[in-house]
Write a protein that binds this DNA or RNA. Sequence first.
DNA 1: TTGAAAGCGCTAACAG
DNA 2: CTGTTAGCGCTTTCAA
Lengths: 334, 334
Amino acid sequence: MKVTMRDVAREAGVAVSTVSLVVNNREGVSDELRAKVLKAVEKLGYRPNRIARSLKTDRSHVLGLIIPDITNPFFPLLVRGVTDTASTYGYSILLANSDGKVEEERKYLNVFADTKVDGIIFTTSVKFKDNLQLLQELPIPKVVLDRYLGPFNIPTVTADNITGGYLAVKHLLECGSRRILIISGPQGYPSSMDRLTGYKRALDEHGIAVDPDLIEYGDFTLAGGQKAISAVLDRGLDFDGVFAANDLMALGVLVELAAREIPVPEKVQVVGYDDIPSANLFQPALTTIRQPAYEIGHEAVRTLIRAIHHRDRTPPAKILVPELIVRKSTRAAE
Amino acid sequence: MKVTMRDVAREAGVAVSTVSLVVNNREGVSDELRAKVLKAVEKLGYRPNRIARSLKTDRSHVLGLIIPDITNPFFPLLVRGVTDTASTYGYSILLANSDGKVEEERKYLNVFADTKVDGIIFTTSVKFKDNLQLLQELPIPKVVLDRYLGPFNIPTVTADNITGGYLAVKHLLECGSRRILIISGPQGYPSSMDRLTGYKRALDEHGIAVDPDLIEYGDFTLAGGQKAISAVLDRGLDFDGVFAANDLMALGVLVELAAREIPVPEKVQVVGYDDIPSANLFQPALTTIRQPAYEIGHEAVRTLIRAIHHRDRTPPAKILVPELIVRKSTRAAE
DNA sequence: TTGAAAGCGCTAACAG
DNA sequence: CTGTTAGCGCTTTCAA
């Protein structure tokens, strides 16, 4: 039933060590013996047991990936970048959804460590600090996404959120908006704080003072975006542009604006962030900042594999560049 | 650095077997010794090595999941159903995207088998037959999604596609459409063939003859749906309803109809399939057949785990029920 | 170039 | 209730 190296060795009339060499395509076996072994492998239908190999070599060729939620449309493409690249290098991917909960992150971090994955790709949560220590203690190569962690000696792959926020608001400004509402992500979430910084920088550059009333905090969901804009509207606040820190919230804004029959982009212009697939489907199509999600996943794996092979090197911080995608929720530049 | 059971045993002054019992929360250890062991575990920071455990017990507590493409909006929710449920039972998930390619499926099937996953959840491709034999040969519990494979003795979880197609077309009929175009999935893809069967059944029931000119085949992508409807329109064919075999194609239809200024639902009514998140975002919001994606994933894991524990039982075929979601791309029933 | 043997960390008889 | 020990299937010195 279950055929092992020993069986192959017996069948081929050689030692197990020889079979091992052949199976792993290594030097030092005569062509004759190699052929014999291969024939035996074929005949018996031998398949190497990776678990046993892992136990011996301390390499599983499995990588762990922890994201908040695959159901958030930003992540599928990132995951695809991870799985494709991993596959290229001969690695498999263990996937876990944390919902951004500290305990869940902790749980999967531990499970992955015990499973002896060769590396972990980790997307942070709000209260990430709580797990920073655990992350540092785990004696496993890792890379953190969407957050700069250089000082903690953990490699990082992220798109430049400050530039992204800056690009979004600059575009709004250039298209004529003057009072720009930002619906930021949750406070303390670094990527959304960075986008807020970009927002301020753009205003600053255009000589416009930052109005605290125009800074609202959402939760990265569509409903949250809708609720946030609704609250602002009810407060009777005046604004002619909205920068939402992600597309889901921007879509919520668009939905609410449509419900109240406020024309976009004529009266209010809207820019989102991420460029999720629906952004282009909605009416009006959403102007947004595209994050290179696939590439983030791709770079994460490359960085991780590099870390696996040279455990000593200085952790790199790879910063990718976001891009403005102009569609119909903003007017043309003046 | 690396602490093993042996170290814990030495620290606690007991035998390794005792440590094993304690670590696995098993009976037969005095409270006193148990406490001692636990203290040693704590002190040394011992973590059991799952690889070693797997080698011994022949159970990895890992499940393999093969889907065509996580980037297809139907799958994230399904995957979530799988990971959530797996996690509940203490299993991790290895994820692979096959793009529906036979060789990729084969590759991951083999990788998973060698990795000694405890079970495999497999979503079929068009030319699935090529891998059927491999699937049957793998001595691993498995469950196949979206396809009835009862005769081959492989458990199955699927939503009833015939009923789904029937529901969609019946709704169109009840809302006044008479000449209904179907944009089916690729030929030979069983789930889309089933939806076509449902289409025919509904027409039949309403005494309407099936017109072969009104059967078009798409490729399950948005661009494909757009292209298909475009071709039909260019052919000057007359129709007042469209049933697209998935939402992506339905969205393509809606996009093209909008481009040609054909009013939906006034002139043409449209129904999709899947109920992906964008379906509700598009204008007009898409009437569709909801597949219980999360539940499919959930049931797949439950079925698989049952199979893992009773290897001998008759493979069940769990058939879930799709549901009509009425939105704005169809008129109200008359 | 080939073979014998030790051992990765754990579990599970088995004996005491 | 506790301890000793033989492997799980593989890789890898080390000797021949």
